[in-house]
Nucleic acid binder design. Structure first.
Lengths: 195, 195
DNA sequence: CGATTAACTTGATTTAGGTCACGATAATGA
DNA sequence: TCATTATCGTGACCTAAATCAAGTTAATCG
């Protein structure tokens, strides 16, 4: 029997509401634990993203590959984050993204149809969704602004401020790509910032 | 008496649910019509965004100003879109953004506290919010990807594909800024793409 | 453990797009 | 209506960051 406590705590904390025993039961039945080893894929480009995953342990990156084979990291995800290409997940269209485990990964996953049920039947779950989409909206507003109006160096400083733990946890070339930089440029920025 | 029909139609259509007479009454009481003339501000940097506005007529831009006085357009909004800095609106923190009317603007506006009420009491309204946040999440994902992995030219082509009416409606320098480009660069791209 | 592969650094060179300057149109307003 | 102020186009030049290349350090695995 998988331990759902951390998941329940997360939902209750972020939503500000309690889960009933029935709620918990429903979640336990329909969220399936899934393990991926480092470098395995949660989602591959061209596939429909049928599952949304809640990260219990580990980390992942969401990235695209352009015509020249150049990889582009759009998102780095760690514990207590949700994993999905939302466009593909909501609209059931083939995804343009890849999602790959950067460390051994444990997720709790469920389908679009099930999520609809949770939203209908579990008040804490739909309250959670509202909070998350608020947060997501705010975060993407910020990231957009960073992308367009900050220099490479400012974006790096911004990352240090907002996600200092990323620096320890992810290889530098992933961070570079996440910031929209070449690995060489990030290396040089770090060198200079030691002054 | 202000004509709310277009607003009601919008809510019903996007949510897939009907509004009762009571619902409509509640909305009419708490959404206040507001008119802004071209160049007037809906929100100024440093202020808390106390109102969210639904655009009935006209258009607006959301932008920041950096230390060098350089303006940066993050969003262009037209009829049937919502106007707010969501971070400031939800968290009641001072905004880093400006929202300015690009054409004479008519909005229906309401406060955070009222929106909470609508979400609680009007099923169509909360269904609408879910759809909008899905759409918004998808749009942000796309815009993020465009910002990071497309060239200037690709971003422009993308805009032509997705929002062709923007080109007729907004001055070219606004479009340039929205795409993260200098006006000169956009002018040159347009020149080249005539081949 | 040593061998292979991945991650990082540093230098030289290139390039996309920005900045500056100025003239041409077009829009706006007294 | 003319004057003023935005907007747009084009050329010359500059710069931040990418690319290419090659060596170094660190991680991974049989």
């Amino acid at each position: 029997m998988y331990n759902f406590e951390a998941f329940f705590d997360y939902i209750q904390e972020i939503s500000g509401k309690l889960l009933s025993e029935d709620d918990k039961h429903l979640l336990m039945v329909h969220f399936k634990p899934k393990k991926l080893r480092k470098r395995q894929y949660f989602l591959q480009e061209g596939d429909v993203c049928r599952y949304i995953g809640f990260i219990v342990k580990g980390s992942a990156r969401t990235f695209t590959v352009d015509e020249k084979g150049h990889e582009n990291v759009l998102k780095l995800s760690v514990e207590n984050w949700w994993l999905a290409d939302f466009e593909s997940f909501y609209l059931l269209t083939p995804s343009r993204f890849n999602i790959e485990a950067l460390e051994n990964l444990e997720v709790l996953q469920s389908t679009n149809a099930q999520i609809e049920e949770f939203l209908k039947n579990i008040p804490a779950f739909s309250a959670m969704q509202n909070v998350i989409s608020q947060n997501y909206t705010i975060a993407s507003q910020k990231r957009m602004q960073a992308a367009f109006s900050y220099t490479a160096e400012e974006r790096y400083e911004d990352l240090i401020r907002n996600y200092p733990h990323f620096l320890k946890r992810f290889p530098q070339n992933m961070i570079a790509s996440y910031l929209g930089l070449s690995p060489e440029t990030l290396s040089r920025i770090r060198k200079n910032s030691f002054k």
